[in-house]
Amino acid sequence: MARFIVRRLLVAIPVLFGLSVILFLFLRLLPGGGPAEAILGQHATPQLVAQITATEGLDKPLYVQYLNYVGRLLHGDFGASFIDGREVAATFLIKFPATVELTIGALIFAVGLGIPLGRLAARHPNSWIDGIVTVISLFGISIPVFVLGYTLAFIFGVELHWLPTFGQLDPRLPINPVTHFAIIDAILAGHWYVIDAVAHLILPSIALGTIPLAVFTRITRASVIEVSNEDYVRTARAKGLTDRRVNDRHIMRNAWLPVTTVIGLETGALLAGAVLTETVFSWNGVGSWVVSSIQNHDYIVVQSLILIFATIFLTVNLIVDVGYAFLNPRIRYS
């Protein structure tokens, strides 16, 4: 197992290196000039653009810029934004907890609802129950996130006034941002402010979790149906085991494998930034940060963030692969 993990980690190095080169070149091929134009907007004059370009070292040859960037990266320095001069790492530590929180919320929604729905559909294949679950899945996959987000906000925020429509906490509450995890900060602040934090999490979690919900439902359904037709399940039933025991001990334990894989992949994708959801709900996470950085040609931020995302994605995948071994002792990596 240790060798497997080490090998996977070594493979990650050329992947990240290749990604960094591609990103570096791609970002500089974006039309519309560089960050100087983004900083100055309509105030940009050729003289000022040249001045900023020189100040930021963007007039140096590309390979020099790249080597400087990698050199800093190897020292743990992700650089600073061209726009506000703020260290990428410092801003990341403020924004990433919000994305983690949203990811967890979306996963709770998607896993908590998707797997029971998938099991339900699998137990009644081709029935009206299965049909309803299929419709829910198709709805979840088809509806654009921003449409769902605005709709949820409109119904539950604007019309019913049940839930907040933006942000992680009511700005009027005296909650100090200690950890930048809104729920933890709210707990630390006391006064049951945690209820407000949870309320803020509900709508974005549903909006973000709908597509994973549909995916988990379909995968669970397919996996359970497939395993249910295996010989060992028939044998178990023939032995006279109860339905519940067959389901829990023989079907679900084996059906979990593909489901786990998909959950892992979705988790990695969600952590890499829920761009639309964060924009619709003004969620101060990394997704909307990436978008604004791309628009501003803030190369350093985009490069560093995508490398961080790639690392997270690779790590989550590794954890999923390792998790296989624990879920199914028959699987061993060598």
Partner: peptide, 12 residues
């Protein structure tokens, strides 16, 4: 749109 909804819901 988020701004308008925040106003309509008295969030801001």
């Amino acid at each position: 749109t988020a701004t308008l909804q925040a106003l309509q819901s008295n969030g801001v």
